[in-house]
Design a protein around this nucleic acid. Sequence first.
DNA 1: GTCTATAAAGCGATAGAC
DNA 2: GTCTATCGCTTTATAGAC
Lengths: 190, 190
Amino acid sequence: MLNSRVAERRDILRALGEVFRAHGYEGASLTLITEATGLGKGSLYHLFPGGKQQMAEEVLADIDGWFEQNIYVPLRSAEDPARAIAAMIAGVDRYFASGDRICLVGLVALGVARDHFAGAVDSYFARWHQALVALLRKSGLTNAQAQRRSEDALLTIQGALVLARARNDSKIFRRALSDLTTRLLTPAEK
Amino acid sequence: MLNSRVAERRDILRALGEVFRAHGYEGASLTLITEATGLGKGSLYHLFPGGKQQMAEEVLADIDGWFEQNIYVPLRSAEDPARAIAAMIAGVDRYFASGDRICLVGLVALGVARDHFAGAVDSYFARWHQALVALLRKSGLTNAQAQRRSEDALLTIQGALVLARARNDSKIFRRALSDLTTRLLTPAEK
DNA sequence: GTCTATAAAGCGATAGAC
DNA sequence: GTCTATCGCTTTATAGAC
């Protein structure tokens, strides 16, 4: 029963996440949230006394948890770099629905809301970056090379999501992920 | 006197652009716009009878015009690809204040406002892409190579802006532009 | 724990004086 | 051409019945 409550809350957070994704933090009105979750304002403020700010915080924490579990942990504990990178790319492709779903953390980062969630936004990318650096070092790259290549990976994913949506062409995202895989697997030069 | 009116309007559009950049389309309230421009609501609606929608349309058109003149035209008319690429990177670095200023077109693309400005958003990137493709073909790349490399350039710039702001580190943007220059100048393989 | 009703503030937009 | 006052609506948030 405790588990069902947790599961329920997570379902609500997932629904909330899609509203924030579609309308942004300021655009996600309580009316839209009410429709998406099926919960009245009374219920919402009972579950999230901190209002919209708390909702967004928990949504970001939920997303963070998903990436921690499905991307960062496998990256850190991997033994075979090539397989780990392929798994990361596959996970990213799945999460972002091959370019049809944008990154809420990236969207928040670009808006004013970023100042309210700066810690969560930075941590999401910082931990991803560090996990990827650790993996790439195992594949023989120097620290500087691994740092730069990991940064390139994160930025490529974000840019591909922006451009795919701007041009309404998810093939852009798929091509970018494919090329990124190749770049990440290329042995270090020099 | 006609010129001064045009110049004045452009100054207003530049101020409007910064408000939209900082707060997004939905977040840019008329109160904020009033403060940023120094114009009352009456004046604003006299200048822009179409309201906020018209303001955003003209801001996007102004940005588009800036890129057309300062980036796309030089790209199309260039004779020396290496110099043209260096000039484009320099222009991009200047426009985005080395990563301290985000791309309004990219921000709009990620939000709901995208549907209202889909044409302008797509055109901005499509024309940039085409101008870059034409230039890269002059440097000996096949059409497919030029297409892919141009796409990579656009997406890298957008991603670098997102990541630099997310991590509050404009060095990320500068590094990305530097690496991008190298990639664009690398001779075609095979 | 969920609802309806409502408060208080802010929104985009308009009217009309000057 | 710019201002103030105001309209009608929506916003976040709260109160209180059930």
